[in-house]
Design a binder for these strands. Structure first.
Lengths: 116, 116
DNA sequence: GGGGCGTTTAACCATTTGGTTAAATACAGA
DNA sequence: TCTGTATTTAACCAAATGGTTAAACGCCCC
């Protein structure tokens, strides 16, 4: 189970069908049938994907007669990008941290059965 | 099954334990034992998480004596951020696309059992 | 009020995921 | 070679995921 929204968002983005739906929605709101059309998949399957996207706040659904148009919401994406950018700089810096680390290990080794 | 790396990357990021590991690695390479320490979880569980991170290229492991130090790799993160940024602008713009869309639906409705 | 369209729910299924414990592997050092 | 430490593999399990088909629900329109 993923309790936090960040986990839910990344999980939602991990499926190509759901990403395709988001891309489609980036050009405006769409009905479920319209979203389903490009995918070789049953309607209930699409409905489930939409529920996953809704659960983490990536889309919102409203009612208009017999249609349930979906539109995208940017907030969770922003949170995800923010999380990544927060560490990205460190990650890109740490290209050669391995070498440093190996040297550290070497220094510790020279015979020390040291705890922890 | 997720064939593409983007899906694998998002799936890897969807777990809090794995994100914590990445954060830890952002300050430099670490051994498996060191990475496991903060988590109330068995060693094999950590080993599996590391395999998930390795599968999508978020980390690399090497050998140094009996240790298998891990270091982070930025490339998959960059791909993920790039994917999100590519559409982020559209998403943030489409705040009120719902209204437009409802008007479109209205225009189509006025009795047309139209096939599509 | 009945027919038909759009959408969701229910029930089911196979696979994947995230964890466990116990055993195996790899290596260092005495 | 034996012992201890670091790590992975194997086997297992419960729960979540991603799909299916069949039935139900909601709403327009005649």
């Amino acid at each position: 189970m993923h309790p936090d929204r960040l986990s839910l968002t990344f999980a939602a983005l991990a499926d190509p069908t759901r990403r395709a739906i988001l891309v489609r929605l980036s050009s405006g709101a769409r009905t479920v049938t319209e979203l389903a059309a490009p995918h070789d998949m049953s309607m209930p399957a699409i409905s489930k994907h939409l529920r996953v996207l809704e659960r983490c706040g990536l889309i919102e659904r409203s009612r208009e007669a017999q249609w349930r148009p979906c539109r995208i919401k940017a907030a969770p994406i922003k949170e995800a990008v923010d999380w990544m950018e927060q560490y990205r700089r460190h990650w890109e810096e740490s290209l050669d941290r391995l070498e440093e680390y190996l040297q550290e290990l070497q220094k510790e080794k020279p015979h020390g059965r040291r705890k922890k």
